[in-house]
């Protein structure tokens, strides 16, 4: 019984192309623009849920726990805590290809560098963010270590102004 095929080893493949053009995603006007505009002043401004007290960074339009609009803005600390982290192997050409671009070849990432990605919670917030952790050897990173925001030399009100985080204290590792 059934339609199990034993006649062919391979199905025929017919290649076709389809230019699907652009997608359009809807987002609330302005709230992220305002978030990054404050980066110019080196400020991290999140949204506050007045019904449960959670502060969201990046800002969020609704609190999913309360199902309420988060209309209040609140400035949060530049200091945070490493909750968990990832460490890349030394980067090589041909290993990091994103959307067809070799990130090392193109100079976005340096050959041989090791990137630390930290999941950081800024003090007083109820959300975690993924940010590069810099100015520290990967071997010295610890869960729970205090970090602080690192800003670009000249902030322009862009997402890229927040370069990442670095250790908040100099710690001797015995």
């Amino acid at each position: 019984m059934g339609l199990i095929k034993e006649k062919f080893d391979k199905t025929m493949q017919v290649e076709g192309e389809w230019n699907i053009g652009a997608y359009r995603w809807k987002a609330p006007e302005g709230y992220l623009d305002e978030y990054v505009r404050n980066f110019k002043e080196r400020k991290i401004i999140g949204t506050l849920c007045t019904s449960c007290g959670r502060a969201y960074v990046p800002p969020r339009e609704i609190c999913a726990r309360c199902f309420t609009e988060t209309t209040e803005k609140v400035e949060v600390s530049q200091y945070g805590e490493v909750l968990a982290f990832l460490v890349s192997p030394p980067l090589e050409k041909g290993k990091v290809v994103i959307a067809g671009i070799d990130a090392v070849q193109a100079g976005f990432l340096k050959e041989g560098e090791r990137i630390i990605l930290a999941m950081v919670r800024f003090e007083g917030t109820a959300s975690s963010m993924v940010l590069p952790l810099i100015n520290i050897e990967p071997e010295k990173v610890r869960v729970g270590m205090k970090v602080k925001a690192v800003w670009a030399e000249e902030c322009q009100g862009k997402l890229a102004d927040l370069v990442g985080v670095e250790p908040a204290f100099e710690v001797k590792y015995e």
């Binding site: 990054v36 968990a84 990832l86 890349s88 994103i98 999941m119």
Partner: peptide, 27 residues
Amino acid sequence: IGMDMRSFAIMGLAGAAAGISAYQAAF
């Protein structure tokens, strides 16, 4: 909102491995 290409590539590092599951493993 002004992400630069370096950050884009860094985001792709974990994404290329196994996306959000790599973060979850670290957590």
